[in-house]
Nucleic acid binder design. Structure first.
Length: 421
RNA sequence: GCCGAGAUAGCCCAGCCCGGUAAGGCGCGAGCCUGGAAAGUUCGUGGCGGUUUCGCCUCGGGAGUUCAAAUCUCCCUCUCGGCGCCA
């Protein structure tokens, strides 16, 4: 959510921002129109209330009689007028809120202008792509060959888009989760195990609601959403809190299953690249505003360290305005190389949300004692999404006989085992 | 699921029965005092707008009654306790 003062004072900047993000500008005009009338009525009612407060105090002190009755009757009309204005303001306010909740964050000046993912900037590549002296298999072939991924039975239990890991596959998943969390703990994050369901206030706070609401699983009876990303519960842990300046930065990490309905998305339906339920380890940072862009670089490094430790080739993308998600002002994607299709898989997204989420969640700090509290900045990065890391490991570490070598850093988590199969 | 008790400023808490400017304490900050500190004392310490001394809003959320609601009525949410059920 943007500061409404910015929308009022620089509407043309907001308009061109919306265009650069492929968003509809009609929302801006709707806001400005509603806001103008709302502000006028606010002023009117302020004035009417002032009169009513004053006269009510006089009434309290007046003796019974026609003078008093006249005042009361007068104030009855004033009260009626206030009530009418309030009703109109409530209408306008819901328009304003609807608009402001649907206006995306303002991209940082370093973000390239572009219409879609083809215009993202590749910052650099890391690692050597392995050369194979045989034709590398797809991850699902490897997984099924080793009986460590079971698509059919996963679908039997929960439906299409759900899968099951077995044996060393399940152990590898657990090893990765533990490894990721251990690394992040050493990087300074506090490990958290939050709820897997989140309420509407939480998904509104981080910006998934309303614009991504159809992509989340919703439990109607309890009005709860299945967690779409641990960014939601982690960020909302501190919702409506005023933090002490000396407590910042606050760093949380969590392993949590994530659920996405993936409506209308038909690419990558084979394998585990795009599924409805996946595990993910997430990092969230609550920081002082002036440090957030430097922190984004650190956050990205925190995620990169993991991919490097696994020895997987990857590249860093700086997303352009047209491809960035709703809440962020700047975002890097980390894509791991998958040799079977000669493709890059997005395994991490590291974003600075500036005060956009903090404003929605009302997370503040006091710069100096007794000064006005201000919104903090929030950042979030995946470290990492499990299925795509699994794909990259299976494909990059596969051997000609169908077995998979376990990356060295994971072996301590698998009882010293060196290969699967 | 049933019954009961609660929700008031950063924190604690009074006011509610009986409607009329939200009291007090803690913590924090500033001034006075002091050689310095403590103690003492004065002031400040929710939000928005205007910017000297002003106004409006704010008592978990919403609706209602009233000239006037923290206070009365109704609905909802959350917390705590008891009972029930339960991995």
């Amino acid at each position: 959510m943007l500061d409404v003062n910015i929308i009022r004072s620089e509407p043309e900047m907001i308009r061109s921002m919306l265009v650069s993000r492929n968003a509809d500008t009609e929302i801006l005009d709707r806001f400005l129109e509603a806001d103008e009338e709302w502000r006028k009525l606010t002023g009117d009612n302020n004035e009417l209330r002032k009169i009513r407060n004053k006269v009510s105090a006089e009434i309290a002190k007046m003796p019974k009689g026609p003078d008093k009755d006249a005042k009361i009757s007068e104030m009855r009309d004033t009260g009626e007028k206030i009530k009418q204005n309030d009703a109109r303001m409530a209408e306008l306010d819901s328009v304003r809120e609807d608009c402001v909740l649907n206006i995306p964050n303002i991209p940082h000046e370093s973000v390239p202008i572009g219409k879609d993912s083809t215009e993202n900037a590749v910052i650099y590549e890391w690692g050597e792509k392995r050369t194979f002296n045989f034709k590398p298999k797809e991850h699902w072939e490897i997984g099924e060959g080793l009986d460590i991924i079971d698509f059919e039975r996963g679908a039997k239990v929960a439906g299409s888009g759900f899968y099951c890991l077995k044996g060393d596959g399940a152990r590898l998943e657990r090893a990765l989760i533990n490894f990721f969390l251990d690394v992040h703990r050493k990087q300074g994050y506090t490990e958290v195990f939050p709820p897997v369901v989140v309420n509407t206030a939480s998904v509104t706070g981080t910006g998934q609601y309303p614009n991504l609401k159809d992509d989340m699983y919703f439990i109607e009876k309890d009005e709860l959403y299945l967690n779409p990303t641990a960014e939601v519960p982690l960020t909302n842990l501190l919702r409506d809190e005023i933090l002490a300046k000396e407590d910042l930065p606050i760093l949380y990490t969590a392993y949590l299953p994530s659920f996405r309905r993936e409506v209308g998305k038909h690419a990558d339906t084979k394998g585990i690249i795009r599924v409805h339920e996946f595990n993910k380890v997430e990092m969230v940072r609550f920081v002082l505003p002036e440090t957030s862009y430097d922190t984004l670089e650190i956050l990205r490094k925190n995620a990169e360290d993991i991919i490097q430790a696994l020895g997987l080739p990857y590249r860093v993308l700086l997303l352009c305005t047209g491809d960035m998600s709703f809440s962020c002002s700047k975002c890097y994607d980390l894509e791991i190389y998958a040799p079977a299709k000669d493709a890059w898989l997005e395994a991490s997204s590291c974003s600075n949300f500036t005060d956009f989420q903090a404003r929605r969640t009302r997370i503040k700090y006091r710069p100096e004692p007794h000064l006005k509290s201000e919104f903090i900045h929030t950042l979030n990065g995946s470290g990492l999404a499990l299925p795509r890391t699994m794909v990259a490991i299976l494909e990059n570490y596969q051997n000609e006989d169908g077995s998979v070598t376990i990356p060295e850093v994971l072996r301590p988590y698998m009882g010293g085992q060196e290969r699967i199969g």
